[in-house]
Design a protein around this nucleic acid. Sequence first.
DNA 1: CCGGATCCGATACGATACTG
DNA 2: CAGTATCGTATCGGATCCGG
Lengths: 121, 121
Amino acid sequence: MGKRPEYTAPLAAEGVQNALRILEGRWKLVILFQLFGGKVMRFSELERAISGISQKMLIQQLRQMEKDGVVTRIVHHEVPPRVEYHLTDWGQSLCPALDALLLWAESAPAEIRQGLLGETG
Amino acid sequence: MGKRPEYTAPLAAEGVQNALRILEGRWKLVILFQLFGGKVMRFSELERAISGISQKMLIQQLRQMEKDGVVTRIVHHEVPPRVEYHLTDWGQSLCPALDALLLWAESAPAEIRQGLLGETG
DNA sequence: CCGGATCCGATACGATACTG
DNA sequence: CAGTATCGTATCGGATCCGG
């Protein structure tokens, strides 16, 4: 494979589209941001860190990403129970993309960041 | 603003989350990929380029992104009518992020690219 | 050619209550 | 602490018909 000439982006083959669907969902990216840099977090830590998420959505999206091979779930059989989550290697490889997204999101105009999206008309 | 030490990612403030919601939706990223590099595309071009999308979804997501300031819509009052779409400056600034996402998506395991997502259990 | 309007089913989401 | 179960709603997404 020759080196990429700066930016390529154009095609977006079927396979790529399918892969991108892993990131779909109200909370996926937010969770991934929390787990960044190889951080290991407990369920309750994530719950506290992500304001507004419900237990149901948190566990649901975590389990999906686990199946998709993005995060790893570790159960410690203790009392009280302890379950930790962290990114897989492939999940970690999302790092550059997430960082770029973060930069872009930070550059969003104030109206957007305040929560008024396509609600103009 | 001092330079970032490689990767930062961690916090994901409220505003960032709101901005990221712009990219939510089944077709948003796919459309953005098509419009990449400042390309100007007609409605029917997009429709043909994105296999599987319906007119409704195409127009809906385009209009939303227009309101969100990511794409621009240009109507040429001709017969037959011609409407063209392209990225705004802010939309263009998504370029690095999309490219990084593309690289990541391409590195997805075959099972993912074939369309079997969290459908394991 | 572009795209609005409407109908309809699927599923994503959210709040709440309950369990080992 | 870390989930499950249930229910109601909102939004998504596709098909189809209609109009400038």
